[in-house]
Structures are given as C-alpha cells and as structure tokens.
C-alpha cells in the first residue's frame, strides 16, 4: 500500500528532499515523500484481499484529510 500526501497539501519532507537533491546537482522540479506499507495476508482470495487492504488504508494507514493511497499486488505471490 502506497500512502502519500494529496496534491496541494504542504509536504515539508518532500521539500527538504527536493532541496537536497538540487544541492546534489539533480534537475528536480518537485518531490513528495510518502510511505510504503508491505503486508502479507493469509487469504488467497484476491477480492477478499483487496477489500481488506482498502479497509486497512481507510481505518489506519492513511488519514483521508491529507493522504491518498494506492494498492498494488505483486505479480508473483509466494506459495
């Protein structure tokens, strides 16, 4: 699950990263810092899994006032 600040929300961490990257000589026009949360689920059912991940984001991992989230499944899941 990828959680990051919504567009337009002040992101001081992103600004600090942007500034630091510029100091290193990279041509950067903007940087946003989010959070990646990897979880291992016990279910094999992708529908059930996606529903659970949605609820995780809604209830805990993202604050809907300031953060959006995306959910990604790995292409190969371990057996």
């Amino acid at each position: 699950m990828l959680v990051r600040p919504k567009p337009g929300i002040l992101d001081p961490q992103g600004q600090a990263v942007e500034s630091s990257l510029r100091h290193l000589g990279f041509a950067v026009e903007g940087a946003r810092v989010g959070r990646l949360v990897d979880v291992e689920l016990t279910t094999d059912d992708p529908v059930e899994a996606r529903a659970a991940l949605e609820r995780m984001c809604e209830q805990l991992l993202a604050n809907p006032l300031i953060e959006g989230y995306e959910i990604e499944f790995p292409e190969h899941t371990s057996p």
């Binding site: 002040l10 001081p12 961490q13 006032l65 300031i66």
Partner: peptide, 16 residues
C-alpha cells in the same frame, strides 16, 4: 484529531 473527536490533523512542522 485522529480519533475524529476534533477537526483537522496535525502535520510535521513546516521547518521540520
């Protein structure tokens, strides 16, 4: 605020 009992949210200080 996180519990929804008060409005808004507290974020990192602008100065970090």
């Amino acid at each position: 605020t996180e519990a929804g009992l008060l409005p808004g949210v507290l974020r990192p200080n602008r100065s970090l």
